[in-house]
């Protein structure tokens, strides 16, 4: 804020007011400019995207409902088949959930090590902290699809490439979140354990993990929600599970919309179900930690 000098006391009220008004005006100007630039960016960005799209926004707008309407009406006509279709695609759903669960598990273990090795005060080899942090950054930056596509080429289609791809990204993402938690861990238990001659792994297991476990589990659960979506999407590019079935069902086109509808229902139900369950547990974990 404005600096007030005590020497020019008598006429300072005016000058303070003037400088305050000037500041407010400058601030409004900057705010307005920023808003203007933002608006221009949004509008021109929209126009560019609209130009480069196959169909225009305004022509397509009234067609948004067409496809869902087709799918829903056809699914409604064949509603008697729906339960059997859902049963048919249930194994694919299990595969999608398994991909998400395993990759979260492996990713969380990887992230745990990355975070402990990359946090000051806890690291096994303090000199290597920057290395582990960069590794986590890079693992986080690689989108799952990149690793998945390359691995599908090498390993063939199926759940394994998706699992590895998501696990790598999860390890990086959780490594960062975990190490933010670990930074705030109390070091006294660690010192106490060190004084008894405990090894590094004992210090971490007994001194640090009990402190950070609720937060770690809560982050891992959040990641699990995200990974279910990711594993469905990766299925769409060839890595097994519900996404793969969805792509096939879509390729059939009209006449088989009931299958697409069954998959939509399964996917939607799963995502909502796991979101609810995990958010309830996360609330419980973070509340319990308050005391």
């Amino acid at each position: 804020m404005a600096e007030i000098s005590l020497s020019g006391a008598p006429d300072s009220v005016d000058s303070i007011q003037a400088s305050y008004m000037a500041q407010v005006q400058r601030r409004r100007l900057y705010g307005g400019l920023a808003l203007l630039i933002f608006a221009v960016l949004m509008v021109s960005g929209f126009n560019v995207a609209d130009d480069r799209n196959a169909g225009g926004f305004w022509e397509g707008l009234h067609q948004i409902g067409d496809y869902p309407a087709d799918v829903l009406s056809e699914a409604w006509e064949k509603r008697a088949d729906l339960p059997s279709l859902i049963a048919k695609y249930f194994p694919a759903l299990v595969e999608t959930i398994n991909i998400a669960a395993v990759s979260t598990l492996i990713g969380a273990i990887g992230g745990l090590f990355l975070s402990l090795l990359g946090t000051r005060g806890l690291a096994r080899w303090p000199r290597l902290i920057p290395l582990f942090r960069r590794v986590a950054d890079i693992m986080r930056a690689v989108p799952e699809i990149v690793i998945a596509l390359v691995l599908i080429f090498v390993l063939g289609g199926g759940p394994v490439p998706a699992m590895i791809a998501i696990a790598i990204h999860t390890a990086g993402a959780l490594g960062k979140m975990f190490s933010e938690v670990a930074e705030n861990a109390d070091l006294k238990p660690v010192e106490g354990l060190a004084s008894t001659g405990a090894t590094w792994s004992q210090r971490m297991l007994l001194g640090v993990l009990p402190q950070v476990a609720p937060n770690y589990i809560s982050y891992a659960l959040l990641r699990f929600e995200i990974n279910i979506r990711a594993s469905a999407i990766l299925g769409f590019v060839g890595a097994g599970g519900l996404g793969y079935e969805l792509r096939n069902a879509m390729a059939w086109g009209p006449g088989r919309f009931d299958e697409a509808a069954a998959i939509f229902i399964l996917l939607f139900g799963t995502i909502v179900f796991f979101d609810q369950v995990s958010s309830r547990y996360r609330n419980r974990l973070t509340e319990g930690q308050g005391q």
Binding site: N53, P68, R229, L267
Partner: peptide, 18 residues
Amino acid sequence: DALIWTVVLARAFGPGPL
């Protein structure tokens, strides 16, 4: 999910960044 929205929207607007 974004996956389903993408599939649905691609029907209306065609492929592309929009």
